[in-house]
C-alpha cells in the first residue's frame, strides 16, 4: 500500500510543527525520515497513525483517507519511547496486541511464534516485559508493530537503546521487511539511514528540505570535486604555484606547508586528478596521497538544517 501525504499542516499555537508538506512512499520502499529534534518527524508520524488529528491536508493509504479511522489495521506503529505494559509477560502482551488488531483467533499463536522467531525473543518470551533489557524491550516493540502483518510500518527511532550487534540485526530485519512493505522510519543516526533506507527525506522546521537517495543528496551538496593531495620531494611554494596554473584547478590551499599537503578544489564539473598526476610526473615529484574528499551525510544534514 502506498502512503500519500498531501499538504499536511499541523500547528501548536503559533508554531507550525508541520508546514504544508507533501510526499509519497511506495510499496517496497524504506523511507528514512531525518531532521533535528522538534523538526516535526514525530508529529507527522503520529498523524499518519491517526493518533493526533490532521489540521489541514490529508493522508491517503492505498488511496483511502486515514480520517475514516479504518486504516489503522494496515499500519504497524512503533511509537517514539516504545511504551509497553511492564507487568505483562511478553507472550501475553503480543497476544493482546494481536487481538486488538483483529487477528483471527486461530492465527494468533502462529503469528506470535513467527514474531518471537523474527525478533529473537525466544529466550525471553515468558519473562515480564519489565524484566527485559532495553534492547529486548525494543524488540518487543517491533514485534507488536508487526504482529498483524501490516502493509505499512511506521517506526519512530527503532534502534535507540540497542547494542551494535542488535542494531545490525534490526537494520537487516527492516531491510528485509522493506521489500514487501511500505516503511517509514525516523532516526538521528545518519549511517543508519544509509544502511537501511532507499530514500531520505530531511525535514526542518516542519518543511521538507531534501528528498532523494543518499547518493543524489551527496551529489547535490558536493558540487565541486575536492582532493587532498600530498606531494613529496619538491619545494612547497613551487608546487603551489604550478598547481594553481592547472587548467581544471579552481583553488589550491595549504593544509600543511612542512609536509606538502594541499587541498585542491576543481573547477565545477571538472576532474583534476589526471592533470595533477601529469604535473607530478613532469616535475619528478612523488604523488604520495590523492584522496577525494567525500561530503559526509552529517555535513549535508548540518548544511540543510542549520540556518
Amino acid at each position: 500500500m502506498d502512503i500519500q501525504i498531501q499538504q499536511l499542516t499541523k500547528s501548536y499555537g503559533f508554531q507550525k510543527a508541520v508546514d504544508n508538506i507533501s510526499f509519497s512512499v511506495k510499496t517496497g520502499e524504506v523511507l528514512g525520515f531525518l531532521g533535528p529534534n522538534g523538526a516535526g518527524k514525530t508529529t507527522t508520524m503520529k498523524m499518519i497513525t491517526n493518533y493526533i488529528d490532521i489540521e489541514q491536508g490529508d493522508i491517503l493509504i492505498g488511496g483511502q483517507s486515514i480520517k475514516s479511522g479504518k486504516m489503522n489495521r494496515h499500519i504497524g506503529y512503533l511509537p517514539e519511547h516504545n511504551p509497553l505494559y511492564l507487568d505483562m509477560p511478553v507472550i501475553d502482551y503480543l497476544e493482546y496486541c494481536a487481538s486488538l488488531q483483529s487477528v483471527s483467533k486461530s492465527m494468533i499463536p502462529t503469528r506470535i511464534r513467527e514474531m518471537v522467531r523474527l525478533c529473537g525473543l525466544d529466550v525471553e518470551k515468558h519473562k515480564k516485559i519489565g524484566e527485559l533489557s532495553k534492547g529486548y524491550r525494543q524488540r518487543v516493540g517491533l514485534a507488536q508493530a508487526m504482529i498483524h502483518d501490516p502493509a505499512i510500518l511506521i517506526l519512530d527511532e527503532p534502534t535507540t537503546g540497542l547494542d551494535p550487534n542488535q542494531i545490525i540485526e534490526i537494520r537487516d530485519l527492516i531491510r528485509q521487511l522493506g521489500k514487501q512493505k511500505t516503511v517509514i522510519l525516523s532516526t538521528h543516526i545518519l549511517p543508519e539511514v544509509e544502511a537501511t533506507c532507499d530514500r531520505i527525506l530531511i525535514i526542518n522546521h516542519g518543511k521538507i528540505v531534501a528528498d532523494g537517495t543518499a547518493s543524489t543528496l551527496r551529489k547535490q551538496a558536493q558540487g565541486q570535486q575536492v582532493l587532498k593531495v600530498k606531494i613529496d620531494e619538491g619545494d612547497s611554494n613551487d608546487i603551489f604555484e604550478k598547481l594553481q596554473k592547472l587548467e581544471h584547478v579552481a583553488m589550491v590551499d595549504f593544509v600543511d606547508r612542512a609536509t606538502n599537503r594541499f587541498e585542491i578544489q576543481s573547477v565545477a564539473e571538472m576532474q583534476s586528478n589526471k592533470e595533477i598526476f601529469n604535473l607530478c610526473v613532469k616535475n619528478n615529484w612523488v604523488l604520495s596521497e590523492c584522496i577525494p574528499f567525500e561530503t559526509k551525510l552529517e555535513d549535508i544534514f548540518r548544511d540543510l538544517t542549520l540556518n
Binding site: G69, N72, Y77, P79, Y85
Partner: peptide, 14 residues
C-alpha cells in the same frame, strides 16, 4: 502516563 494509550489508539481500537 506510560504512553501506552498511544499504542492502544493507533491499533484497531476506537
Amino acid at each position: 502516563r506510560s504512553g501506552t494509550i498511544e499504542l492502544l489508539l493507533t491499533k484497531n481500537v476506537s
